[in-house]
């Protein structure tokens, strides 16, 4: 997991809900912050900020419940750095 991505995602969520105390591993669905609007905003934010396209089969609740798991999703979807190999 990348702390960089996680912090950016967390900052986005906190910016939208500054009255709440939200940590990286908090379930934002369980806390009641996600409606269809915020879900759309989250997807747009992640795609724009990290330059990834989230395919339909990755649009699962397990991938968006916390800032930490969203950061893991970004890591999986991000293109490998040039020159990186096995």
């Amino acid at each position: 997991m990348s702390v960089f991505e996680q912090d950016q995602i967390l900052a986005f969520i906190r910016d939208r809900y500054p009255q709440a105390e939200i940590e990286a591993t908090d379930d934002i669905f369980g806390l009641g912050y996600v409606n269809s609007l915020f879900a759309m905003e989250l997807v747009m934010f992640v795609e724009k900020t990290f330059g990834v396209a989230i395919p339909n089969d990755e649009l699962r609740i397990e991938n968006f419940q916390t800032a930490a798991v969203m950061a893991e999703l970004v890591q999986r979807l991000a293109p490998s750095p040039a020159g990186a190999g096995i």
Binding site: N35, S36, L37, A39, M40, V43, N56, R60, I61, F64
Partner: peptide
């Protein structure tokens, strides 16, 4: 068309937008 489950509402939100 599109995802099912929690994110299916995004199809509606995005299309209405």
């Amino acid at each position: 068309l599109g995802p099912s489950g929690f994110s299916s509402g995004m199809v509606l939100t995005g299309t209405l937008d």
